[in-house]
Design a protein around this nucleic acid. Structure first.
Lengths: 235, 235
DNA sequence: TTGACACATTTTGCATGCAACACCTAAAGG
DNA sequence: CCTTTAGGTGTTGCATGCAAAATGTGTCAA
């Protein structure tokens, strides 16, 4: 039945992952995402399709697709007249998103306690340790990436594909906010402590505790966002 | 500053809602959704773009957009070769989706307890009552629609836009499964009892109880799905 | 000076054409 | 008889053109 398996389909490049056919749309989406997240494109700026397409050297068709992708990720907003802008969420909207993210992760934690393999859990522990072992002068971006990986690996351990999908969406929406939040050196200690608590509950496969710790962790993110806002208001 | 407010922008047609510009893509998406949910298009069948477009009397461009919309709703799947099919989720996948839906709704319930207006809560109570007052011979579809409205109104009461958005997505994915589940007349009693418990907790604005009842309600949906499967296996 | 209207420009939605890729069938070789 | 391969067919990705809608601008009247 399964014919293509007999063929030499094993052109699998590196990891065991699906090759995931590249297309101009996804590449453009990646490029745009980078531009937006690194603030090369300020929030709220209109994004005329043609200019963008020209800038990226592609036609409008795949660019439109890219904008659609970024729309579901929440990085691009469409006005009532279908003119795309870089999303500019208010603090309130960000907070609402974090609430949902929190619920998603806490579900992931619960599920991971019963569904994760021992290997997956130990990998989460590894990530936790890597973060703690990071030198104090390491870049904010480096710390941030590990932080993201830590959370993502918990979701992966839940073995719930749609959950992972949605979690990814919300993560993308909150990338900028979380990145800003993580730039404060003095937060690291706090973050590490909370990660430790999460890891501990996870290793014990204590679903209730894991969920609780994850909620607490995300909650402190919200509080931190408020602090940043007040600090910004002063300057 | 705000110029357009001074103009006679009040061409708001009927409700206070945004007119929401129609486009061929969204119309096609609606049409296709209907076809899929009513099983006019069997799960797993390939969906060649050109034929579909021709059938709907539109070109491939807007149809492609429609397929994208239905993809994020989970009704259309893209194979590794970018050939679209009607999604055919396994029972296991459906269950995973229900788990996420459950977490979303229970969060919505919690938030509704603190954020909902009294009017919103009383409307939820109205819906609960409408369902109970339905005659026993009313159609499964009628009962089902009220059921959906009940859940949707709880989410709306949470006043969390992204949550509502995501909830809608998951609802769309699970439409068929939930519809099948709701066709069993003997489930009605059970559903009504659970709805009553949810409504009661909501009226009392007891966040913990609301969340708990919602989880329980969705959990019984999962169990019911298993029953349906076993029944199907026999026939 | 302010407001409204009409025209010019920009920008998106949709249709269509072409090229690359995937799939199916059938013939050739083992 | 089974496997492999070559060709034909169908399907999707992308580019481009056109029309409709929206925005910006300048002029005129109150």
């Amino acid at each position: 039945m399964n014919k293509q398996a007999s063929k030499v389909t094993s052109i699998v490049s590196e990891s065991g992952q699906v090759p995931e056919r590249r297309s101009l749309s996804t590449e453009a989406a990646d490029a745009l995402r980078e531009l937006i997240l690194l603030e090369k494109l300020a929030p709220g700026t209109p994004v005329p399709e043609r200019d963008l397409a020209e800038g990226l050297g592609i036609s409008r068709t795949p660019l439109k697709d890219a904008l659609r992708i970024l729309e579901v990720e929440g990085l691009i907003e469409y006005g009532p007249t279908r003119r795309p802008r870089v999303a500019d969420p208010s603090l309130d909207e960000i907070e609402q998103n974090v609430l949902v993210l929190s619920a998603l992760e806490s579900l992931a934690g619960e599920l991971a306690c019963s569904s994760a393999s021992d290997k997956q859990i130990s990998e989460i522990g590894d990530l936790d340790r890597s973060m703690r072992d990071l030198p104090a002068n390491s870049s904010a971006l480096e710390f941030f990436h590990l932080d993201m990986e830590f959370h993502a690996s918990i979701v992966a351990a839940s073995r719930n594909e749609p959950l992972a999908q949605t979690h990814k969406q919300y993560n993308a929406r909150l990338w900028r906010a979380r990145f800003m939040s993580s730039r404060q050196q003095d937060r690291r200690e706090n973050t590490l402590a909370e990660h430790a608590a999460i890891t501990k509950a996870l290793v014990a496969r204590d679903a209730a505790a894991t969920a609780k710790q994850l909620r607490k962790h995300l909650k402190s993110t919200i509080i931190n966002l408020h602090h940043i806002r007040s600090a910004d208001a002063k300057t």
